[in-house]
Computed example of a mutant assay.
Amino acid sequence: MPLPIALPSMITTLARRPRQSGGAALVAAILFAFAVVAPALATPQQAPNSRVVLDLPAGYTPSPLFSGFQNDATGVSYVILEAPVAEYDKMAQGFTPDDLAKRGITHVEKGSLDRTDKHIYMRARQKSEAGTYAKYFVLFQTADQTVLVSVNVPTLSLDDGSVKPEAIEHVLATAKTTEKPAVRNLFSLTYLGPFKEAGTLVGTSKVYTLDGRLDPDRTGETRSAFMVAPSLDKRPVADPAKLATALLASMPGYKDFNIGEPRSITIGGLDGIELEGEAADEEHGTPLYLYQAMLLGKDGGYYRLIGIATPRDKPQVAAEFSKIAHSFALLP
């Protein structure tokens, strides 16, 4: 299965808020989640921590990891990303064969949905170690939001007829928004040290900064931050130490990684891997201290707790990252 690139790219965004806050970067935040299906007798369901409503068939439940729905019997899911209304054109620029090919997404073709709003609907394919996946996604604009709904399905399920493309397209055609989000907290942190909650990304990922703001005072500014980011699927993790190291050492926007040895940990009843390391900001070369705890979900997937400290803040916050991470607990 292809690794989701959402979480590392978002931690880059929260720590440095790049000048190009949309486009391919935001599209990438959702394209690698897994997925799908949709038969008849659909019922409108509002996604957790989201304003988006989808007409879904029986068997779908709100995901415990991301903003969207999953069907444990079929292993498919719908994943939702919401952005400001002004981000539509920037995100739409990422839906080109060339940009998608950079993310291993091929056979890209535009499709049509029974929608009257401003939208883009595309189909594509992606190869992975687990097989080939068909991808379906719609980007649409409402009066006050930009919404991306991503759906993926193993091609084997299409070949044997258990999943129908027409059913997927029917669900995507029904996607709409309501006035208020359905708030559902998945986890808690009982200790934050000097950090304050700054906001939410991709529904269930939370960001914490020293000033409690998502955006820095100056565009492109590098700053310290902490983030809790669930994976966008429930894949089993065969080698946690290897995956944790690879994820930390491949965060977009950074270079010259020097990652320490992984340590086994248990936090909130979840086993995991703790890492420390260093890197440099790709744009300015600013040296940064990195911390990560990757905790394994009991039925698949993982939770990444990531800390980034600038040289100025490191003496104050570096030791706090582990304390914050060890206060993590899943909510019932």
Rank of each mutant, 00 (worst) to 15 (best):
E320D: 12
D99F: 12
V237L: 14
K135H: 06
L290P: 07
P194D: 08
L81Q: 13
G212A: 10
S77W: 10
M91Q: 10
A29K: 05
H119Y: 15
P18W: 02
E197H: 12
M91K: 00
P64S: 11
L54A: 10
N152T: 14
K206I: 00
L248I: 12
T174Y: 10
L296V: 11
D299Q: 10
A28I: 03
M251P: 00
G199F: 04
I80R: 00
S231L: 09
S63G: 11
Q45H: 12
D256L: 08
A33I: 00
L201H: 08
T219R: 15
A246K: 06
M91W: 01
G111Y: 05
T174P: 08
F32C: 01
S162L: 09
T74Q: 14
R223A: 02
M227S: 07
K102W: 11
P181V: 09
R19Q: 12
V147T: 14
K314I: 01
A92S: 13
D99N: 15
P8F: 04
L275S: 08
Y121V: 02
K196H: 13
V27K: 11
D217T: 09
G59R: 13
Y302I: 00
S205H: 09
P236L: 08
F34A: 13
S322N: 07
P311S: 09
A134S: 14
F34G: 15
T200F: 06
R19H: 09
A167G: 15
G272Q: 00
E283V: 13
S188G: 11
A241T: 08
P315A: 03
Y208V: 04
G269W: 10
G220K: 07
Y291K: 02
L186Q: 07
I308S: 04
V85R: 15
V202Y: 14
L330Y: 04
T116L: 12
V237N: 09
A73C: 01
T200P: 00
E276T: 15
S327E: 06
Q126F: 07
S112V: 15
S67Q: 04
T209G: 09
L26A: 15
R16C: 07
V76M: 12
L113S: 03
D160Y: 07
R312N: 11
T178K: 12
T204P: 01
A58L: 06
E274D: 05
P262K: 07
K164S: 15
N185T: 05
E274M: 13
E278V: 03
L100K: 01
Y289S: 11
G94L: 05
L7M: 07
V163W: 04
